[in-house]
Nucleic acid binder design. Structure first.
Length: 470
RNA sequence: GCCCCCUUCGUCUAGUGGUUAGGACGCCAGGUUUUCAACCUGGAAACAGGAGUUCAAUUCUCCUAGGGGGUGCCA
C-alpha cells in the first residue's frame, strides 16, 4: 500500500450547493470511502468580493443534509494567501515567472486582434523576455507564469482518457494579480499539493484548467494528482442548468420532499453505472464505486426518475427516518400543507404513516395524504366529493351509520367485516358505499383504504363526520 | 473565431468485431380493485449522418452535423 487516497471537494462560496456540486461531492466522498481514504473540504474563496459567509453556510448545510461528511476542518483557501504568494515569488526568483505591465485595455485589444485573425486568443507574452528597465513607473505589474511555448501538455484523465492540448493554446497565466493577491490557478495547485490531494475529481468545465495546472505542478517539481473530469449535468431540455430546472440548491430538493438517500442514488446514476443496477445501498456504493465506470457524456436531469427512486426509499425507510425527515422541513412549509406541528397531529401522522407511504412519491405527498386527519369538523367537501354525496348516497350513509354505531370493535378487520356484511345484506356494490363514505370522512375522493381511514379517525370522529353529511 | 470534450429507446444507462442491442424511469394497453397509489401481464421505443478498415461494424479510424465546456487580474 503506497499513499492513502485523498480527495477534496472544493466549491467556491458564491451561492448554494447546486445539484452538479452535490454530485461532485458525492463522487469525491464515494471514491475516498471506496479506497479507504479521506475526503477534504476546501472553500475556494480566493476572490473575496464574490465570496460570502452565507454561501459557505449554505454549502455546509447542503452537504450535511446529503449526509456527506468530510474529514477534518474545512480549509479556507483565503487563509493561505501568504503561502501562495511565496510560491509565486520563488518562481519569479528562479526565472520561471515574470512581471507583466500590460493594461487590461491592451489585453482586450490583443485578444480581439487574435480572434479576428483566427488565432487562439491568448496573451502574446510581450513582457516575457522584456528588459525590466522598460517597466512603466506607475503601473503595478501582475506576475505571470512562464509556460512552455513548444510541445503539448497531456492530461492523463481517469475519466476522459488522455487529453492533449497544444502549449501554443495556453498562454502565460497570471499567478499574482497587480494587487499582489494570488489567483485561483495558483492557489489550487499549491493547496492541492500542500493538502496532499492524490485525486482531483471535478466538473469537466475545469478540463482546460487542468492543463495549466499540470504545467505548474511540473514547474514546481511536485507530484501531480490523478485528474478525473466528470461531464456536467444539464437541465431537462439539454441546456445548461439554470434556475428553472436543476440549478436549485439541495435544500430546494429537501423542500420538495426528497430523501437524501434517494437524491444520492439518483445522482450517482447520473454518469456512473454498475451493470444494470439501479438501487444501491450506501455500502454497495462504497464497495463498487470506481472512476473507470464514470461515463463521458453529459446527462440530463429527470425529475420523474428521481421521484420513482424517492418513492422506493420512502417505502423502504423506517418510519422514524421518515418522521425525522418531515420534522426537518421548515415549519412554514409544513403549515402550508395543513400540518400544524402540535403533538396530536404528529401522533396522527405517525399512526397513518404505514398506509400513507405506499401512495406517496415525496414527503409532501405523505403530509398531503394525512391532511384529512388534521382537518376539523365540519369538513368542506371538494367538488368531486360533493357530487358523490347525492341524495341516494346520503341514504346509504344513513343506513350504514346505524350499522356502524352498533359496531363492537373499531379496528380494521371488524370494520371491514361490518361493512361487507352491510353491502351483502343490501345487495349493493362496495364502491357505492366506499366512495360516499370516503367523501364524508375526508372531504375528497382519494385516500388510503376506507377501513384504514375509519380506523385512523377513531370511532367518535368518524361517526360525527358521517352525521355531518346527513 | 480558436481549443477541448461528447453522441445507444423521450430520459438515465448496459453491452459486444458476429446479440432477437439488455435494464430502469416515463409512456400505451389489459388485469386486479372501495378511490388513489401499488402490483401483475403485454406493448411501442435507440446505436446522429457519411466514408474507410474488415468476411462482418453499434463496437476500430476519419469527416460532417448537433450538443456541451473553455477561451478573465472569476472560481
Amino acid at each position: 500500500m503506497t499513499n492513502p487516497i485523498v480527495t477534496r471537494f472544493a466549491p467556491s462560496p458564491t451561492g448554494f450547493l447546486h445539484i452538479g456540486g452535490a454530485r461532485t461531492a458525492l463522487f469525491n466522498w464515494l471514491y475516498a470511502k471506496a479506497k479507504g481514504g479521506r475526503m477534504l473540504l476546501r472553500i475556494e474563496d480566493t476572490d473575496r468580493r464574490r465570496s460570502s459567509e452565507e454561501a459557505v453556510e449554505a454549502i455546509l448545510a447542503g452537504l450535511k443534509w446529503l449526509e456527506l461528511d468530510w474529514d477534518g476542518e474545512p480549509v479556507f483557501q483565503h487563509a493561505h494567501q501568504a503561502r501562495h504568494r511565496e510560491i509565486a515569488e520563488a518562481l519569479l526568483a528562479e526565472g520561471m515567472a515574470y512581471k507583466c505591465y500590460c493594461s487590461s485595455e491592451e489585453l482586450t485589444e490583443m485578444r480581439e486582434k487574435a480572434r479576428a485573425e483566427g488565432r487562439p486568443p491568448v496573451y502574446d507574452g510581450r513582457w516575457r523576455d522584456r528588459d525590466p528597465g522598460d517597466a512603466p513607473p506607475d503601473v503595478d505589474p501582475v506576475i505571470r507564469f512562464k509556460s512552455p511555448r513548444e510541445g503539448e501538455t497531456v492530461i492523463d484523465d481517469a475519466v476522459q482518457g488522455p487529453v492533449r492540448v497544444a502549449n501554443s493554446e495556453l498562454d502565460d497565466l497570471i499567478l499574482l494579480r497587480s494587487d499582489g493577491t494570488p489567483t485561483y490557478m495558483l492557489s489550487v495547485v499549491v493547496d492541492d499539493h500542500d493538502m496532499g490531494i492524490t485525486h482531483v475529481i471535478r466538473g469537466d468545465d475545469h478540463l482546460t484548467n487542468a492543463a495549466r495546472q499540470l504545467q505548474l505542478f511540473v514547474a514546481l517539481d511536485w507530484q501531480t494528482p490523478q485528474f478525473s473530469h466528470v461531464p456536467l449535468i444539464h437541465g431537462s431540455d439539454g441546456a445548461k442548468l439554470s434556475k428553472r430546472h436543476g440549478a436549485l440548491g439541495v435544500e430546494a430538493y429537501r423542500d420538495m420532499g426528497y430523501l437524501p438517500a434517494a437524491l444520492r442514488n439518483y445522482l450517482v446514476r447520473l454518469g456512473w453505472s454498475h451493470g444494470d443496477d439501479e438501487i444501491f445501498s450506501t455500502e454497495e456504493l462504497i464497495k463498487w464505486f470506481d472512476l473507470d465506470a464514470i461515463g463521458r457524456a453529459p446527462a440530463r436531469f429527470d425529475f420523474a426518475k428521481l421521484e420513482s427512486l424517492n418513492s422506493h426509499y420512502i417505502n423502504t425507510s423506517p418510519d422514524e427516518t421518515l418522521i425525522a425527515a418531515i420534522r426537518a422541513l421548515p415549519d412554514q412549509l409544513l403549515n402550508q400543507h395543513g400540518l400544524v406541528g402540535d403533538t396530536e397531529n404528529w401522533q396522527k401522522l405517525t399512526r397513518a404513516l404505514p398506509v400513507l407511504k405506499p401512495r406517496a412519491r415525496t414527503l409532501i405527498d405523505i403530509i398531503e395524504g394525512a391532511r384529512f386527519l388534521f382537518a376539523t369538523r365540519p369538513l368542506t367537501m371538494d367538488a368531486k366529493a360533493d357530487k358523490i354525496l347525492s341524495d341516494q348516497s346520503v341514504e346509504v350513509l344513513r343506513e350504514l351509520l346505524a350499522e356502524l354505531e352498533t359496531s363492537a370493535a373499531w379496528d380494521v378487520p371488524s370494520l371491514e367485516r361490518d361493512v361487507r356484511g352491510f353491502i351483502e345484506a343490501n345487495d349493493i356494490k362496495m364502491g357505492a358505499v366506499a366512495q360516499p363514505l370516503r367523501a364524508a370522512l375526508t372531504g375528497g375522493t382519494t385516500s388510503p383504504g376506507i377501513f384504514d381511514v375509519l380506523a385512523l379517525l377513531g370511532r367518535d370522529e368518524a361517526l360525527e363526520r358521517i352525521r355531518d353529511r346527513l
